[in-house]
Amino acid sequence: MTVAWINRGLAAAILVFLVLVPPLHVLSEFNLSQVGTRSLWLGIAAASVVFLAANGGMVSLGQAAIYGVAGFTYADLVVKVGWGHWPAIFAGMGTAIAFGLAVGLVARRTTGIYFLMLTLAVGVIVYYFYLQVEQVSGQTGLHLDRAPALVGGDTISHPTRLYYAALILSALVYVFIRYLVRTPFGIALQGIRDDPVRMASLGYNVELHRAVAFAVGAAIASIAGILSVFFNLQISPSSIDINQTIIVLAIAVVGGLTRLRSSSSTRSRGRHTCPESCSGRSARSGTRPGSGCCSCSSSSPRRAG
């Protein structure tokens, strides 16, 4: 127990050291910006993927498209409509959340591998939408003169403030997710991930929980979208193309999506519903779903009547 706490404290100290010291002229501004800030905003995007996968059992390939919606809306309102930065930022986030809720409602009954395919299709459609519609972007995309003064204005010449802003936002997102998974909503979501049939028979609205969870994921991703516009001072369809989708997914996978693999892969087969401890064990030992421990088959989790 105490050893664990010492380890945690040590890890936290090292982390704080690593994130706070670099800006103090230890790292060049190039490294600070291109490595530090970029990892932070991509990390927020990946956090939305991990949040959905870990708590909802939904592996989304549409998060890049959703942060694209936030970024494009923000940049459009500033560049083409002439809004101020802050209203445009909140409008962009709002649009992304609304879009996320819409996608979540469309996908509310699709699970597992179908969900993966559907969100990928939505992501590519959003990419082609911004590529084709000249009124909102077109191939060249949108260019901002400067970001809001709060994050340093010209973030390419003066990246330090943006680094701290991204750092604070990353910490807030982390705390928010940690908080959310402990709320009744988060617990219900995890219950739905593990056994949708049981949750439905307990009276939970499974589909609505899934849709709202996806909207929450969109809200997290939209922060990354706004930060990416601050960071690049431009956004174009290539910012949300399939390569970017894969980069976000790769970050999430390296960070620990596979830990939850078993829950979503067995779920999508639908024939077996394993208890949590059981599926966790099968993931670690690498046994195939449907073999060995997962003998506890129940009715397939179709829509409960």
């Binding site: 009954r109 179908y114 459609i125 084709q132 639908g270 397939s300």
Partner: peptide, 28 residues
């Protein structure tokens, strides 16, 4: 005509709102 890509999205939306596993798909 630039917005024609959205019709593909609408196609997905309508089909999935009625049949979550596609027109001839089965939930397996």
């Amino acid at each position: 005509s630039n917005y024609s890509i959205l019709l593909t999205f609408l196609l997905l939306v309508f089909v999935l709102s009625v049949r979550p596993f596609g027109l001839f798909g089965r939930a397996t």
